[in-house]
Amino acid sequence: MTAKSAVALSVEAVSHSYRDLRALDDITLAIPAGEVTVLVGPSGCGKSTLLGILGGLIAPSQGRVLMEGPIADDCLNPLTYVFQDFALLPWRDVGGNVALGLEAAGLSRDARAARVAEVLALTGLGAFATAWPKQLSGGMRQRVGIARALAVHPAVLLMDEPLSALDAQTRALLLEEFSALITASGVTTVYVTHTLSEAALLGQQIVVLSRRPGRIRDIVRINRPLAGRRVGDSDLVAVEARLWGLIRDDAADAAREFADA
């Protein structure tokens, strides 16, 4: 019997190309169990490609990803994504969307209903079980995305810019909720973002990728629990400044490249 997952990922010499375009080059990285690893970098550095490779949605051109550590008995989908565009099925209500992963795992109707009710309550969606996605705001839709991911009790949560489609206030509120949910569950998390303040608030290991082809430029650690971190904390502001220093030149080059394109 394994009560709690504690899965670490090892990325071994991963490279990836889209035809002639080299997106990632020789990435070797350890993602520790139970920690939040944030991937940051300028546009087009291959952050989302790396996340796709981590969860098995993209086959790397070279290299491999290994999983190690126990997976809880109640985990139905070890590597679970939260998507930038929410990826909700518009023809299913909130409860139906959250239940999707549970159906795939073959859970009984009663067991599904219990898990759905549990995660809807956890994410503040209890009153919205029968609402259609179109009736929800962007923030509420992403809550459904989180609820759907938590319902399968993942061993690793892979979050692809989950807040980038939302307004600044909703982002700030949801980030606090993400932090609390991740802390409570202790799930290994890989979080992709453009926003350095998000990286500093949520990251325990922040991996800075260089401009295309994405290589690891630096890894910044914040040895402080997520609980208690606040916007404006001096150590986090210092981390943000350091991250910006690492990214700035690449970001400027990337912006010029896109403007020229």
Binding site: D85, A104, R148
Partner: peptide, 29 residues
């Protein structure tokens, strides 16, 4: 049908048949 929805289905371990019946068919309806 959005590729992102199909990716989502794959990420949750849906079978090809389930992706067809639960995502592609309603999306194409």
């Amino acid at each position: 049908v959005s590729r992102s929805l199909i990716r989502m289905g794959q990420s949750f371990g849906l079978s090809r048949t389930a992706i067809l019946t639960k995502i592609v068919l309603p999306g194409a309806l």
